[in-house]
Design a binder for these strands. Structure first.
Lengths: 228, 228
DNA sequence: CTTTTGCTGATTGTCAACAGTTTAAGATCC
DNA sequence: GGATCTTAAACTGTTGACAATCAGCAAAAG
């Protein structure tokens, strides 16, 4: 029972109003309740959350630094809008980081971890067979998260998570299009294969390509940037 | 002359006290005036800078998100201390990002850019010949900055700059050891060569290796992490 | 002598109010 | 009718004050 108390205290310890609000805003952005370009009204937010403007402002300065909002002096904070060029740049970086993750993981992966990853792929297969995009997405997410987690570079994992959060700022919300489910999972299978084979270069290349293909799919067959 | 006024207004426009203070603190960390683990006293800082605690706190929340400080509830903000493991992780990420920068640049580099990079290498050669570490360092910095800038991915450049700032949190301050000057510039020459040859894969690999060698040099011949 | 308990000063977390700027509506002029 | 100036409301930037919490020290208990 002391575990509950401990964890509760631990939570209370690291959570000021500022951090709670920042987390809440992050989730609102992730859920799409705050759309790109929208302005945050400090007074309204303060009233709605039952706190004063101080913690709100501090939370916003944190969000600014992590790229989720823009702050314009004397005008307010705006949910950042990712244009095509910025999204393309982000995908490029993401590809490089996933390539690194793949190389790292393939050189230290355990059999248990391979089994877990394999389970995610199976989940996605099932979702695909059922044509259920809503259950495909979380499997996809956990597959990618697990790869960077298992890679052992904690900072890399944090960086990938931050980039993923930032991707939600893209106006075109379909991060993975329905039509790509099948081919995407084929790519997952190749990635898994090469990780299981302890082939760092191969796994890295497969992951890198996987991300770059997503980017191409997002930007359409022509590959040009929208509104850039 | 309107340029002066404009730029002054532009500065005033985008600069609240918060952003000025954040920038000031970043520079203090970079100059080593604030050493790792040290605690920031809000009252003292506010008094010294002639402002109230509000902007100071907002600036610190920004620094927290960019990883330069740790904030502990009810105890204050502490200059973050990078232990060996975290530094190693950061070098790994940095290597991957520079690899990407090299591949990007080699595929789009202009002759003028090659000339500029070549100039930096020459500067470093001169500094090396004079045994002047103090003039080697800025050349080195500009060489690396230029590579990511010329690569055309603005976000990548920002990310590399952020990582570079964060590296200053390492307790062992010699980011590039004197003994490495000669071999380091040899590596620079190889990098430049491959960029000039429009060889993306080669340039990327050379840059990646360059960073990983720096990491190895920092951690000593044994390659183990200090205090990790 | 060691440990615990209860203060005291200092410091952080939060709030409410004031000052300056922006925005937008209304009035005025062409 | 449309454009421009005026003015007031709304909002952000900043400040100072108050409440809550923490570190350190002294006194008391074992």
């Amino acid at each position: 029972m002391s575990l509950d108390i401990d964890s509760a205290l631990q939570l209370r310890r690291n959570q000021s109003l500022t951090s709670i609000i920042r987390h809440e805003l992050e989730q609102m952005i992730e859920r799409g309740e705050l759309s790109a370009g929208e302005r945050l009204n400090e007074n309204a937010l303060a009233a709605r959350l039952g706190v004063s403007r101080g913690p709100i402002r501090e939370a916003c300065r944190g969000l600014e630094q992590s790229g989720l909002v823009n702050v314009v002096v004397n005008r307010g904070v705006f949910i950042r809008a990712l244009d095509g060029r910025e999204a393309a740049e982000l995908y490029e970086i993401r590809a490089a980081l996933y390539g690194l993750a793949g190389r790292l993981l393939a050189s230290i992966v355990t059999d248990e971890q391979v089994a877990i990853l394999s389970g995610y792929v199976a989940e996605m297969d099932a979702a695909m067979a059922a044509g259920d995009l809503n259950s495909f997405y979380p499997g996809n997410l956990r597959f990618h998260e697990a790869i960077v987690e298992f890679g052992g570079n904690g900072r890399l994992a944090a960086e990938c998570a931050a980039i993923h959060r930032e991707m939600h700022l893209l106006r075109r919300r379909t991060l993975d299009m329905p039509g790509r489910m099948a081919t995407s999972n084929d790519e997952h299978r190749v990635i898994l294969e090469r990780i299981a084979a302890r082939d760092p270069a191969g796994a890295g290349a497969a992951l890198e390509e996987h991300v770059l293909i997503s980017r191409a799919a997002l930007f359409g067959p022509l590959g040009h940037y929208p509104d850039a």
